[in-house]
């Protein structure tokens, strides 16, 4: 009977952990998407200094998020995002045309990252 109790406890813990992970990922990805939007907003209004600061904040947030996410997500997906985020600040300072596209790419990948953790039929099947 103790084995059964252990097994039920493990299953319960895994379900609880999965739900917790979904909430953590949702809140963190939303925060990062907001940061990316902030960079875009400042950049589109021509405020390069604030856009650069926002890009710095985005980069800092990403470093913390990446460590947490490496427990749940494949390394290569995080590497792709790291590459994209590392380009943001240089693009802001160099007034690169591709900044908006890169920010859109980051937002999209973050959203996909969150979506891939949802226990929906398209992820399960």
């Amino acid at each position: 009977m103790s084995r059964v109790i252990t097994a039920i406890s493990i299953i319960t813990a895994i379900i609880a952990y999965s739900v917790f992970a979904i909430f953590v990922i949702r809140s963190e990805t939303s925060e990062l998407i907001s940061s990316a939007d902030e960079v875009r907003m400042y950049n589109n209004s021509g405020d390069t200094a604030n856009a650069a600061d926002a890009a710095e904040r985005l980069s800092d947030k990403w470093l913390g998020f990446e460590k947490k996410m490496s427990v749940f997500v494949r390394d290569d997906r995080l590497t792709e995002l790291s590459k994209a985020i590392s380009k943001v600040r240089p693009y802001v300072t160099a007034a690169n045309d591709e900044l908006n596209a890169e920010l859109e790419n980051i937002s999209r990948q973050l959203w996909l990252l969150y979506r891939s953790e949802l226990p929906a039929w398209y992820n399960i099947l």
Binding site: A7, I10, I11, V71, R74, D75
Partner: peptide, 21 residues
């Protein structure tokens, strides 16, 4: 090593637990 360790641990303990149940 690119795979999180949890992607191995979770299915292993889940399968074993389901087997016990």
């Amino acid at each position: 090593t690119g795979l999180p360790l949890l992607t191995g641990i979770v299915p292993i303990v889940t399968l074993a637990s389901l087997d016990v149940i």
